[in-house]
Amino acid sequence: MATPHALRPGSPAAPATPKRGAIHPLWVRITHWLNALAAIVMMLSGWRIYDASPIFPAFSFPTAITLGGWLGGALQWHFAAMWLLAVNGLVYLSLNLASGRFVRKFLPLTPRAVLRDFVAALRGKLAHEDLRVYNAVQKFAYLFVIVDLIVLVLSGLAIWKSVQFPLLRELMGGYDNARVVHFSAMSLLAAFLAVHLAMVALVPRSLLAMLRGR
Rank of each mutant, 00 (worst) to 15 (best):
residue 46 G to Y: 00
residue 61 F to E: 01
residue 123 R to H: 12
residue 106 F to N: 13
residue 32 H to S: 06
residue 212 R to T: 10
residue 135 N to G: 12
residue 127 A to E: 12
residue 107 L to C: 10
residue 77 W to L: 04
residue 57 P to G: 07
residue 184 S to R: 04
residue 190 A to W: 00
residue 20 R to Y: 06
residue 91 V to A: 07
residue 8 R to M: 12
residue 159 I to Y: 02
residue 189 L to R: 00
residue 202 L to Y: 02
residue 5 H to P: 06
residue 113 A to N: 11
residue 82 M to Q: 07
residue 162 S to D: 09
residue 113 A to V: 04
residue 207 L to Y: 02
residue 30 I to A: 12
residue 180 V to I: 15
residue 65 I to G: 06
residue 80 A to N: 07
residue 136 A to N: 05
residue 90 L to E: 01
residue 76 Q to N: 14
residue 127 A to D: 13
residue 204 P to K: 02
residue 99 S to K: 06
residue 13 A to N: 12
residue 26 L to G: 06
residue 94 S to I: 14
residue 198 A to Y: 14
residue 52 A to Q: 10
residue 190 A to P: 01
residue 8 R to F: 01
residue 31 T to L: 10
residue 29 R to C: 02
residue 140 F to D: 05
residue 71 L to N: 09
residue 5 H to N: 11
residue 86 A to Q: 03
residue 193 L to P: 03
residue 24 H to C: 03
residue 159 I to F: 05
residue 43 M to V: 08
residue 189 L to N: 00
residue 56 F to Q: 14
residue 121 A to L: 12
residue 30 I to G: 08
residue 36 A to Q: 06
residue 145 V to K: 00
residue 111 P to K: 03
residue 86 A to S: 09
residue 152 L to V: 09
residue 124 G to L: 08
residue 183 F to N: 01
residue 76 Q to K: 14
residue 150 I to R: 03
residue 212 R to N: 01
residue 187 S to F: 05
residue 6 A to I: 15
residue 6 A to D: 15
residue 210 M to L: 04
residue 211 L to G: 07
residue 102 F to I: 05
residue 206 S to I: 03
residue 202 L to C: 04
residue 154 L to R: 04
residue 47 W to K: 08
residue 3 T to W: 06
residue 168 L to P: 14
residue 19 K to W: 00
residue 136 A to H: 08
residue 95 L to V: 12
residue 27 W to N: 09
residue 32 H to F: 08
residue 56 F to W: 13
residue 42 M to T: 02
residue 45 S to P: 06
residue 205 R to S: 12
residue 45 S to N: 02
residue 71 L to G: 07
residue 188 L to F: 11
residue 190 A to V: 01
residue 60 S to D: 04
residue 134 Y to P: 10
residue 202 L to Q: 10
residue 3 T to M: 13
residue 94 S to H: 09
residue 22 A to F: 13
residue 171 L to M: 15
residue 170 E to S: 15
residue 13 A to M: 12
residue 141 A to L: 10
residue 122 L to E: 08
residue 171 L to W: 15
residue 9 P to R: 09
residue 125 K to S: 12
residue 136 A to S: 10
residue 70 W to Q: 07
residue 4 P to S: 05
residue 55 I to D: 00
residue 26 L to A: 14
residue 45 S to M: 02
residue 35 N to C: 07
residue 90 L to S: 08
residue 67 L to Q: 06
residue 143 L to W: 05
residue 97 L to F: 11
residue 110 T to R: 10
residue 158 A to E: 04
residue 213 G to F: 07
residue 207 L to M: 07
residue 125 K to I: 00
residue 214 R to G: 08
residue 100 G to V: 10
residue 50 Y to M: 01
residue 187 S to R: 01
residue 88 N to R: 03
residue 161 K to H: 07
residue 87 V to F: 10
residue 138 Q to I: 03
residue 23 I to H: 04
residue 106 F to W: 11
residue 60 S to M: 08
residue 108 P to R: 04
residue 214 R to Q: 11
residue 109 L to H: 01
residue 60 S to T: 11
residue 51 D to S: 08
residue 45 S to L: 01
residue 103 V to Q: 14
residue 13 A to K: 15
residue 162 S to N: 10
residue 82 M to V: 13
residue 56 F to E: 08
residue 156 G to P: 08
residue 149 L to K: 12
residue 72 G to Q: 09
